[in-house]
């Protein structure tokens, strides 16, 4: 059964690019949502959780790492897989995100093959 997806990024352009790249990867989702910041993402997740969330790190208002911590406090999102999508490539920051509840990491610039590789394990 196809999964639901949310893309969280403060750049509308980047959300469209991620959506296009996900489609090019061949992965199919039953429902896709977008959020321009952490608060909007939490509102949408409270209304209806998603199974996979793609999340930027450097965002105004609420950073991606803060959002991961808040999502992990939501019982309804226990099973949500969170994959960070960012230009941030510091291993220390990646390790910290994974320790705090993120399930994967994709660095920009990215390719459809990278999305296939990182998201396929969460599609079953």
């Amino acid at each position: 059964m196809a999964k639901s997806l949310m893309i969280v990024d403060d750049s509308a352009t980047m959300r469209k690019i991620i959506m296009r790249t996900v489609r090019m990867s061949g992965l199919e989702f039953s429902r896709t949502e977008e959020a321009g910041n952490g608060n909007e993402a939490l509102e949408k997740l409270n209304a209806e959780p998603v199974e996979i969330m793609l999340c930027d790190i450097n965002m105004p208002e609420m950073s991606g790492s803060e959002l991961v911590k808040k999502v992990r406090e939501l019982p309804s999102c226990d099973d949500t897989k969170i994959v960070m999508v960012s230009t941030e490539s510091s291993q220390e920051i990646i390790d910290d995100l994974l320790a705090n509840g993120a399930n994967g990491y994709i660095t920009k610039p990215f390719t459809p093959e990278k999305f296939q590789e990182k998201l396929a394990p969460f599609m079953n």
Binding site: S11, T13, M14, I17, N58, S86, T87, E88, S89, S90, T107, K108, P109
Partner: peptide
């Protein structure tokens, strides 16, 4: 803006 962001990210890596 995203081009600047991604080029900087690539430089950083």
């Amino acid at each position: 803006g995203e081009v600047a962001n991604m080029v900087m990210g690539s430089i950083k890596s």
